[in-house]
């Protein structure tokens, strides 16, 4: 029974990683950049929802929507100001700029909300589910995280595969120049991708803070790195890959914590990543790129 409960909380944590990883993987797939500021957008999302519920006294659901709107705007602003001027620049320059944006967001949060951890009250209104005479307790947040993640993955899959903008996204990720020649607005497609990724980051931020209710300016940093790892794990650029990678990473982390060592759980996660990448150098679902001479 213990194992089952660890497994479920692993899947729940994994769902949150998967939602964050989607943001990384979509931006990477389309703009070929590692958006290191993504983790900090999660943190901003958490703070927005916190502000909305505590200071304005809004309904939790409304606070999530508020956080999503703010983060979407933030994502577009960051993209326009910091990344768009660097479209033609080497990828490392963009990476460093992203790190600059990450510092900027963290320190702005530090000034606005101070370094004191805020205790975040869960936005999920349901009580815990008790099964098998109370031997297995599943919290409401766990169920909602898994549920939300599945809905998001299905929606995104539909958007990418069935709609016009999804077609544009696939075209840009395949070949930017050719897409431009076919009349796809590359800049607009990239902006929309950023907007979607940032809105997802807000959702992930709220879920993360509901599950682990401590909110600090550095809250997003480590989940950001882990979700990035998850994206690579599943094959960066692939949406099902991000889902698979996120869930697996969450399960490995929680099971490692429970059965091997609390302090080494991160090390175990990264060790598994290294092994996977050695066996399958482009991740679980990544496409193998052939190099032509």
């Amino acid at each position: 029974m213990d194992f089952l409960s660890y497994l479920i909380s692993g899947i729940s944590l994994g769902s949150i990683y998967a939602i964050i990883a989607l943001g990384y993987t979509m931006v990477y797939g389309i703009a070929r950049m590692l958006n290191f500021a993504h983790g900090d957008v999660i943190m901003v999302g958490g703070y927005m929802s916190f502000m909305a519920t505590t200071r304005f006294g809004w309904h939790p659901l409304l606070s999530v929507i508020f956080a999503m709107i703010i983060c979407t705007v933030l994502g577009i602003v960051i993209e326009q100001l910091a990344y768009k001027p660097l479209r033609a620049a080497p990828s490392l320059a963009v990476l460093i700029t992203a790190i600059g944006v990450s510092y900027l967001l963290q320190n702005a949060a530090l000034l606005l909300w101070s370094a004191n951890p805020k205790s975040f009250s869960s936005v999920v209104p349901f009580d815990s589910l008790r099964l098998f005479n109370g031997k297995l307790i599943i919290s409401g947040t766990t169920i909602v995280s898994i549920f939300v993640c599945v809905i998001i993955i299905m929606t995104l899959n539909t958007i990418v595969n069935k709609t016009k903008i999804g077609k544009a996204m696939r075209a840009v990720s395949e070949d930017k120049d050719a897409a431009q020649l076919m009349g796809v607005s590359v800049n607009r497609t990239i902006s929309i991708t950023f907007a979607i990724g940032s809105a997802l980051a807000a959702v992930a931020g709220v879920l993360l803070c509901s599950a682990y209710p401590i909110l600090m300016p550095t809250t997003g940093a480590m989940p950001g790195i882990k979700a990035f790892t998850a994206a690579v794990f599943g094959g960066i650029g692939s949406i099902p890959g991000a889902f698979l990678g996120g869930i697996l990473l969450g399960i490995i982390e929680i099971l490692g914590k429970a059965y091997i060592s609390t302090q080494l759980s991160d090390a175990i996660v990264f060790a598994v990543l290294i092994i996977i990448l050695i066996v399958k150098p482009t991740g679980l679902l990544g496409k193998k790129v052939l190099v032509k001479v």
Binding site: L34, A267, F270, A271, L273, I274, L277, G283
Partner: peptide, 14 residues
């Protein structure tokens, strides 16, 4: 490339 980068990151964390 990026896969190499993420593995160096992983080793650093380990």
């Amino acid at each position: 490339g990026d896969y190499l980068a993420i593995v160096t990151l992983a080793f650093g964390e380990i």
